[in-house]
Design a binder for these strands. Sequence first.
DNA 1: ACATGGTTGAACCGACCGGTACAATCGAGA
DNA 2: TCTCGATTGTACCGGTCGGTTCAACCATGT
Lengths: 215, 215
Amino acid sequence: MATARGRIDKRLAILDGAFTVFARRGYAQACVQEIADEAGVAKPTVYNHLTDKATLFRHAMQAAAHSVLDQRLAALKPLTEPGPDLRTTMEEVGHHLVRLHADDRSCALRRLLYAELTHFPDILDIVVESGPHRLSQALADRLARLILAGRLHATNPDQAAEHFLALLIGPLEARSQMGTRQIDDTELQEIARAAAHTFLQAFGAENAKARQSAE
Amino acid sequence: MATARGRIDKRLAILDGAFTVFARRGYAQACVQEIADEAGVAKPTVYNHLTDKATLFRHAMQAAAHSVLDQRLAALKPLTEPGPDLRTTMEEVGHHLVRLHADDRSCALRRLLYAELTHFPDILDIVVESGPHRLSQALADRLARLILAGRLHATNPDQAAEHFLALLIGPLEARSQMGTRQIDDTELQEIARAAAHTFLQAFGAENAKARQSAE
DNA sequence: ACATGGTTGAACCGACCGGTACAATCGAGA
DNA sequence: TCTCGATTGTACCGGTCGGTTCAACCATGT
């Protein structure tokens, strides 16, 4: 009705509307009629494209997870060619990651994942495998290069990546109350700055050299 | 029927059974009849003690959050009188915290909180205020003492506490897939060890002295 | 023995919702 | 213009569940 009555794939509109409604109501409380309305489509059309409410949920979650992952991987790009000041590039990357993590759809995705873990165990594989795990791997790759280049001092790039992400996400989650409170951008920047500070304090090459020369 | 037909407060059994069933099914899918069965009680008895399914949920969550918080605060005790080796006491405390965090009830509490954030905004205040926030505050108090005693080098005890908790919880959450996978205790210990290592690398007094003397 | 108040089982009401059936309609290609 | 497939609105079925009612049932205090 409200949608442009074109040939644009309704499937996309359905999946998008489905995620919106699932995010708003949760799986059980979301009724298919509301999803159909949100997508500007009749209820039978929904069942025409997706057989089940469950498979509708699965596909919507998968699509959302995919789009979220792409954004996050793109945010790591500056680390492949960091400027002379490693600290500011790490702060930038951290800021970017934190901003993506605080995004509404990202928060909704995590909430839904947490919520329906028990009912849809297979979704965990889809989302988490293509989510934090892939991100951590990609970050570890970048950090490994930096270690080899002598700009970081760490024994285990995987652990370093895990810890950097933890220093970013942990304080963010604590402050944002699971995405309820809106956080203004300067506070996000402050979180990223603090995380980069602690991380470089622990893994920065200069600090390591200082420690070694003092022994 | 199966329960001892004593005068023991049924209210407690109801709240406990309610949390169990909510954890198992989620809020919407949990039917009151199953809660009554779990508590060994008739359905009208449930409505006799708690007026509503919603208030039942609220009270069950509050009770669970309270018990979880108590355990976590108790785990901080060794930090008030740390032995000569700060590292091992921090590893112990971290191990204890991580083990509590990985507990089934604790995971279920977080899952339910995440899941029903939208429907019960007031629960967030109850749980999060008496949860991670209080824990972070208590930890910050302990760390402040250690800073004054010259055993840690940090400018902001609140931030240090936030970062230590992040280094513990973040990797745990990543590895445990939101509490789905069971983690064996030696892996928990390894997580705590790594967290304490990075934390002391960044905030340890010896490292700081080394850095200063090298400048 | 008697009264009282919480407890029990069972049945019941009303609402909601997933999924389907069906007839009417629309849109594009021949 | 005609036809075919997808889409639409609507109505319906069946099941589930929150919440209530009610009669019977203890267990206690007097």
